[in-house]
Computed example of a mutant assay.
Amino acid sequence: MASTSKSRGLLISCPEHPETPLVEDYHAGDMICPECGRVVGDRVVDVGTEWRTFSNEKNNKDPSRVGAAENPLLEGGDLSTMIAIDPTSAQQLDEFGKPMYRNRRTVNSADRALINAFREIRQMADRLNLPEMVSERGNTLFKQVNDTKSLKGRSNDAVCSACMYIACRQEGVPRTFKEICAVSKVSKKEIGRVFKLILKALETNVDLITTGDFMARFCSNLALSQKIQKAATYIATKAVDLYLVPGRSPVSVAAAAIYMASQASEDKKTQKEIGDIAGVAEVTIRQAYKLMYPKAHQLFPEDFKFHTPIEQLPTQ
């Protein structure tokens, strides 16, 4: 493919059109004047990325000249090239009788287990629509856990799921246990159990989750306006400050706050709709809401415009 270039700083130009930028033909290695077609320079070195395949040849094999990037978390990444030199062996020659070049990579059993775990973590991140940095953090956590050998006997699926949960919280995009459970093969109880074991084994911790960590995502998935989201965030924070919901998880408090804010606005959502998005049972939302309702007049922000007065809100 040809592209316009000012001769890459070289002191060459077309004698007939010295002010015209030359066109660099990477395929032929020539520099051509677009005005008259004169080849001003030839055999230009292509400084682009080398990536060649041989798919146009008669055989169906497609050996690439470059492989995947090395993973620093793997130890057995010995990448080497071997050339078949025994002319009597037909298996070492291609159909034209030429020696075959092969890329050989030795992967030990430990690295093979890590590769499978990294693939599982990547798939969970993709299903949750998470950025690459989260899966990379999950890979690092799994590698650290694997090196300590403190969770032997636990399934890799459970460890992968717990590492993904920790990675989400450490990267500031927390997900609930139910959300992790939905994209993995492990139960919520097992993920929670392994999560605690990993924190103990690595001697690390995670920031406490708050209602604000989930509020924007829940409201967005429910198609609620910014006004309702702001009110729900204020209600949840105020309920925690007033110690109205002791022992309740931030997810259930956030769900109850969204229910209260939506019921007071024109865009009302049912407990079932909110529970489906937040992964919380309707009875859990109802219990948290009942604790908050008696102090409802203290929970709403002062500038909130009520579509339904507090007195007419559902009592449960």
Rank of each mutant, 00 (worst) to 15 (best):
P99T: 07
V173N: 07
S5Q: 10
S5M: 12
S55F: 08
L128G: 04
T308W: 04
R8V: 03
G9C: 08
G37Q: 11
K196N: 11
A2I: 05
P301S: 00
K152I: 15
A257W: 04
A201H: 12
T233L: 14
P21H: 03
N221G: 01
R102P: 01
M260L: 15
R112M: 14
P309F: 11
R52I: 07
I115L: 14
L208F: 12
F195D: 00
L202E: 05
V253A: 03
A201L: 06
L10F: 14
S13C: 09
Y165V: 00
R217M: 11
Q316H: 12
F177Y: 09
R119D: 13
D207K: 05
T88D: 14
Y101L: 11
Q316N: 10
R217L: 09
R175M: 00
D207P: 05
K269V: 02
R105T: 12
M133I: 09
G192T: 13
T211K: 06
S262M: 13
R193I: 00
S225T: 15
L10D: 12
C14A: 07
L291R: 08
A288Q: 06
G37T: 05
T204R: 08
S89R: 14
K272L: 13
P246F: 13
Y259E: 03
A236W: 01
I121Y: 03
G247N: 10
G192F: 14
V145A: 06
S5P: 02
E50D: 10
K58F: 10
P294H: 11
D267L: 05
C181A: 14
G76M: 02
N103C: 08
E95I: 00
K268Q: 12
H17P: 01
Q298Y: 13
N139Y: 02
P294A: 02
L74V: 05
A125L: 01
Y259R: 03
R43I: 02
D157F: 05
S80K: 12
V280E: 03
T315F: 08
S187D: 09
Q170D: 15
L128D: 04
S5H: 13
T308M: 05
M260V: 01
A288C: 14
R8D: 14
V134H: 08
E311T: 10
Q263A: 09
F306T: 02
F54L: 13
A84S: 12
K61N: 09
M164Q: 01
A201C: 04
C181V: 01
R193F: 04
S64P: 02
L197G: 00
L114M: 11
T315Y: 07
R217N: 11
E95D: 09
F96E: 04
A231T: 12
S187Y: 12
L224N: 00
G275H: 07
I12M: 08
K290D: 06
I12D: 03
E273C: 14
A296K: 02
A281P: 02
A281L: 08
M82K: 14
R127F: 10
K238W: 03
Q144V: 00
R122T: 15
N56V: 05
L128K: 02
K295C: 08
L130G: 11
C160W: 02
K143D: 06
A254R: 00
M292H: 06
G48D: 15
A239D: 07
K6A: 11
C168F: 04
G172I: 10
